Computed example of a mutant assay.
Amino acid sequence: MNTDQAKQAIRQRVWDVLEREQAAPPGVHGRIPAFVGAEAAADRLAGLPAWHAARTLKAVPDKAQLPVRAQALAEGKLVYMAVPKLAEALPFYLLDPETLSVPPSEAASSRVAATIARKIGVDEMRPVDLIICGSVAVNRQGVRLGKGAGYSDIEVALLQEAGLIGPNTTIMTTVHSLQVVDEELPEAKHDFSVDLIVTPDEVIECGPPRRPAGLYWDSLSREKIEAIPLLAARS
């Protein structure tokens, strides 16, 4: 079994458990789980020192992290949210709480953001204090598995290349406790680790950070490159 197959087997097991235990809605397979308790996890995250210190966030557009995005905007934090699948030439939505035309709870939705937010490129972004990512599975050493599409890895690599991630940038994920696994998880060279895991019940501090130096083009398929305008323009 190669690394990709091993990752997928773990994802499948976690998706099955979440559905069986009714910790996520039916149809969760293939997705970042919109887990039960996402609001409680966001509340717990919002009490952490790294959260209070952060002024600028980069967040995924997944529904599971919607409460985190809404909390950030409500507190006056600037949020960069990735365009789903990075499918635009300008791959991030700029959500500035000072200029929102709708309440933060609405603006935080990827569907609403698509209609109200200006799209920007990496060259317009400020340095990022905090990165919020989604996960299917994660262990206590900070190794995470996304849904397998690789978009979060590409986003972090782009920020790294642009010098927007520094030694004080914290990467967090919010998950259900059933998504925290007590086993080694396979890693590839383009994977990043998380510094903190926040569930509805606990905060887990992980090991030393692991960050990609930038994009590893040899790990990207031609189909993936052509599907992401920013990468297609650089290839």
Rank of each mutant, 00 (worst) to 15 (best):
Leu90Met: 13
His52Met: 08
Thr169Met: 11
Met125Glu: 05
Leu130Phe: 15
Ala107Met: 10
Ala53Cys: 08
Glu155Tyr: 03
Val83Lys: 02
Leu66Phe: 00
Ala157Lys: 11
Ala64Cys: 00
Ala149Gln: 09
Leu100Ile: 02
Ala53His: 09
Glu161Pro: 11
Leu73Ala: 06
Gly121Trp: 04
Val136Ile: 13
Lys119Trp: 06
Glu161Asn: 13
Val136Gln: 10
Arg55Ala: 10
Pro91Leu: 10
Asp62Ala: 14
Gly166Val: 00
Phe92Ile: 14
Arg144Gly: 03
Asn168His: 13
Ala82Arg: 11
Lys119Phe: 00
Val128Ala: 07
Ala54Lys: 00
Thr173Ser: 01
Leu145Pro: 00
Lys85Trp: 12
Arg111Gly: 13
Val128Glu: 11
Lys147Asn: 06
Thr115His: 07
Thr169Phe: 15
Ile120Ser: 02
Ser105Cys: 10
Ala162Gly: 03
Ala87Pro: 07
Ala157Phe: 04
Val112Gly: 13
Ile132His: 03
Pro61Ile: 08
Leu57Cys: 06
Val138Leu: 09
Met81Asn: 03
Gly76Trp: 01
Thr174Lys: 12
Ala157Met: 07
Ala114Tyr: 03
Ser101Arg: 07
Gly166Asp: 12
Ser110Ile: 03
Met125Asn: 07
Val143Met: 14
Leu100Asp: 02
Glu155Thr: 14
Ser135Glu: 08
Thr99Ala: 14
Val60Met: 02
Gly166Glu: 01
Val156Leu: 13
Leu159His: 01
Ala82Thr: 15
